[in-house]
Simulated assay, not measured.
Amino acid sequence: MASSDGNVRLLIVATGAVVFAALGVALFVVYPETLADLAGVLVAIAAIAVGIRLAGNVADSLFPTYDVAEVAVEGPITRDGGGGGIPSSPRGTPADDIVEQIDRADEDDNVDALLVKLNTPGGEVVPSDDIRLAAERFDGPTVAYTNDVCASGGYWIASGCDELWARDGSIVGSIGVIGSRVNANDLAEKVGLSYERFAAGEFKDAGTPLKELEDDEREYLQGLIDDYYETFVERVSDGRDLDSEFVRDTEARIYLGEEAYEMDLVDHLGTRRELETELADRLGRDDVAVEEFEPDRPLMARVGTGAQQVAYAFGSGIAGIAEEREFRLRT
C-alpha cells in the first residue's frame, strides 16, 4: 500500500511539473515571440518550480508520508508568545498555538504518536498546564524529549507525557515556583513620589512596588506561591508516578540528564535518532517519519522566528504574571 501511494505521489508531482512546464513555455517562450528571450526563459523556469511545489503540496495532502507528529516548546512559555516580561528576552512559546497543534495532530488519522520537543526554562503556570492537558488527552503514545533545557514549566508539561527523554548534559528539574516584586518605596521617597491608595478589598494592591509590603500581604502572596507549588508537586507526582515527598525534597534543584535519569526524573537517555528507533519498534515498523506541526499563521508572522529562539539555562523562566499588582510569579 505504501509503495502504491508513493507511486501515485510521484505521478502527481510529475504531472504537475509537466503541466506547469508546458504552461510556462507557452506563455513566455512560444507566444508572443517577442518574449522568447532570456527573461522569458527564467520566468518559465520559475513557473515550473512553482508548479512542482504546488503539485508536491497536493500530493502530500492526499498521501501523507508521516506517521508521527512533533510540536516544539521553545523559550519562555506564555499565553501569547511574548517575552514574558523580561527586558531583551526573546519571544517564547505561545501556549494556545501549541495546544492547537497537538489537537490538530490528534485529529489527523495519519498520526500514530506525538513527540513534544522541550527546550524551555519554564513559563506561566496556566499556559504550561494547558499544554500538559493537551498532551495528556492525545490518543496515542506521547514522548517528551529535550536536548538542552527542560526546567520548571517545561517539566510541568513533560509530566503529562508518557515518558521523557534527555541527553547526558541536558538540564532537567527546577520543580518550584518563585514570586518577585520590585520594592521602589525608598527610591520613590528620594525623588518625591508617594503612593496614595484607592482600592476596594484589603489585598487588592498587595505587591504594589511603591509601598512597603505589610506582613499580612507578604503572608497572602506567599500563600499563592505555596498553592501553585503544591499543584506543581501534585502534577509531577501523578504524571511521573513519583512520591510527592521525593518531589518536594528536590527543593527546585536542577540536575544534569544523567543524574536526573538515576533519580527517575527522566525515563531514557539518548539521542533523537535513538528515540525514533525505539518509537518505531513500539509501533511495530522499521522506521518512523516525523512531521513538525506548526501553527496556522501568515507567512510574514513566521519570518525571523528561528533567530529569536535560544537555549536557556538554569531554569530562569517566567510564569504567571499579576501585572496589575506588579507581582511576578514564575515556575
Rank of each mutant, 00 (worst) to 15 (best):
D67H: 07
E100M: 07
E33A: 14
P32N: 06
G16I: 09
V25W: 11
I12R: 04
L54T: 10
T78Y: 01
I86S: 06
T93G: 05
T93P: 04
I45V: 15
T15L: 14
D37E: 15
V30E: 05
Y66H: 15
A46S: 12
R79Y: 13
V71P: 00
L10F: 10
P94E: 07
I12V: 15
V99I: 11
R104S: 10
T65W: 03
T93N: 02
A22P: 01
V19R: 00
F63W: 08
T15E: 02
L27Q: 11
A21R: 11
I48S: 01
G85Q: 09
F20H: 02
P76T: 12
T34F: 09
A44D: 08
A22Q: 03
T15S: 14
R53G: 05
V13W: 00
G82C: 12
T93L: 06
I45A: 15
I48E: 02
A105D: 01
G84A: 05
D97S: 08
A49P: 00
A46C: 15
G51H: 03
D96P: 01
V13I: 14
D103W: 02
E100A: 13
P64F: 02
E100G: 01
A26F: 12
L23H: 08
A44R: 04
L23I: 13
V68M: 03
E107I: 03
D109L: 02
A17Y: 04
A47Q: 08
G92C: 09
R53C: 05
I98S: 01
L54R: 09
T65K: 15
G81A: 04
T65Y: 06
E74H: 14
D60N: 11
V8P: 01
V8S: 06
L11D: 05
G56L: 06
P87E: 10
T65G: 04
D80K: 11
D37P: 02
Y66P: 02
F20L: 12
E100P: 00
D60V: 00
D37H: 13
S61V: 09
G85L: 08
P76W: 06
P32I: 08
D109P: 06
V29K: 12
V25K: 13
D96C: 04
I98F: 05
G24C: 07
E33V: 10
V25E: 10
G16Q: 06
D103R: 14
G75S: 14
L23Y: 11
A72N: 14
V18I: 12
P76E: 10
D80H: 11
N57S: 07
P32G: 07
V41Q: 05
L62M: 13
A55G: 09
E74I: 13
A44N: 05
V8H: 11
S61E: 08
E70F: 04
G40D: 08
D108I: 00
R91V: 09
S89L: 14
A21S: 14
V29D: 12
P32H: 06
D106N: 13
V73M: 06
F20K: 02
I98G: 00
I52W: 02
D103N: 13
